[in-house]
Design a protein around this nucleic acid. Structure first.
Lengths: 215, 215
DNA sequence: ACCCAGTCTGAAACTTGTTCTAGATTAGCG
DNA sequence: CGCTAATCTAGAACAAGTTTCAGACTGGGT
């Protein structure tokens, strides 16, 4: 039953254009990502120190930098990893609400709960994501596409082309998601506040009569 | 005529609780902020180097750190400064559109154009703002309140209490504003895209019939 | 005018991200 | 097997944010 392909999913191009890696290299890369996530799980962004990541994953500092050209690249890669897991999980048990907006909101709240379980890790990933400059835009773009895919999956029966209006809505929802996370992580917004913001943004999905859903 | 109080404005507590400064100190602070803005105007966040800010504003490094405990504090203070100017400007010539949502959108687009004039400065300020951790939350909160005030001013005739729903909308608009700026600054979204996102978020202000405004 | 407490200066030191280099190891291949 | 290019390691070196400290300076009260 785990092989049930389920409903067709928004696909994300499996970007692996770089040179193929040997098993050893694959393993190194994975060790690095795990060590990073572990360190981030403790003190957040600041606790991820490149020397420590290198030592902790049994790799020389120079090698670490060959795999990930900067701390931000590294943390964005971790985020991509986590998002892929999340996408997988959501694919197995999608939200069942009637309303598309409600499904999206519930999906994001699930993701949010995951972050609450590891606030430090969330801090590291989200700070890296928003601090990233142009040199990381390709990687950030990948993360963004993944997020969009997750939202689109929650939104509509697969295959139905979203309207331009809906795509705009999705963009705003994504903006809200990132920025609300930041306010939460820096202690300027409560969990409830984030939940409200997400729901508010989701009202954009089907504008007609959306207000009524509140009660 | 410059003393015309104009329409009553959303007020922001003039936070100056700290010890009063001598004229000399006031001047130093101002020199520091100017030097920072100048450096930021060239290379953006990275071009703002603390040693250079110190030298360029004729102040010892230690003194710079006494005035602003970190680079992020410094840049957030610059942003606050700029926002106060903007608020002032907007107070003098508010947008004249009929629709509240349109007024807010136009206001933000004005702010956006200001940023386009100095993209490097924008980069420095916005990156600092979103990278700020808890140690800067008070200052970031001040900036956030200023932004909210600007939006509320654009939104409604002063004095009219916004509904809870509208306040949620304002929060989402702010999230969208910050996040859209980031995508633009890191080259992942066009100017047109940012404009669209802002307008989309503004649809939340008066949900009824908002879709129609598009055409 | 004198003195104290707080402020400012100049310079060195420390931290952590990033780069560089010389030599060891590994992978693919004839 | 033995060669060659690429990769990896250890460690030094460099850059920029931040901290620290001894001594000079300033401002306010007597």
């Amino acid at each position: 039953m785990t092989t049930d392909p389920g409903p067709a999913m928004t696909s994300v191009a499996p970007m692996t254009p770089a040179a193929p890696m040997t098993a050893r290299q694959e393993a190194r890369r994975r060790r690095i990502l795990q060590a990073t996530a572990r360190l981030a799980g403790r003190g957040g962004f600041d606790a991820v120190q490149m020397r420590e990541v290198a030592e902790s994953s049994g790799v020389a500092l120079g090698t670490l930098y060959r795999y990930f050209p900067s701390k931000v690249h590294l943390l964005v890669a971790v985020m991509q990893d986590q998002l892929e897991d999340l996408h997988e999980t959501l694919r197995k048990r999608p939200p069942t609400d009637e309303d598309p907006a409600a499904r999206v909101a519930r999906t994001l709240m699930r993701a949010f709960r995951a972050m609450q379980r590891e606030p430090h890790l969330a801090d590291a990933m989200v700070r890296a994501l928003t601090f990233a400059d142009r040199s990381v835009s390709a990687e950030v773009e990948t993360v963004s596409r993944l997020t969009t895919a997750i939202i689109l999956d929650a939104m509509g029966p697969a295959g139905s082309r979203p309207t331009a209006l809906q795509l705009s809505a999705v963009r705003v929802i994504e903006h809200t998601w990132h920025s609300a996370l930041i306010t939460w992580l820096s202690g300027r917004a409560s969990i409830a506040q984030v939940a409200t913001d997400i729901e508010t943004a989701c009202r954009l999905i089907d504008p007609a009569g959306a207000v009524r859903r509140q009660e």
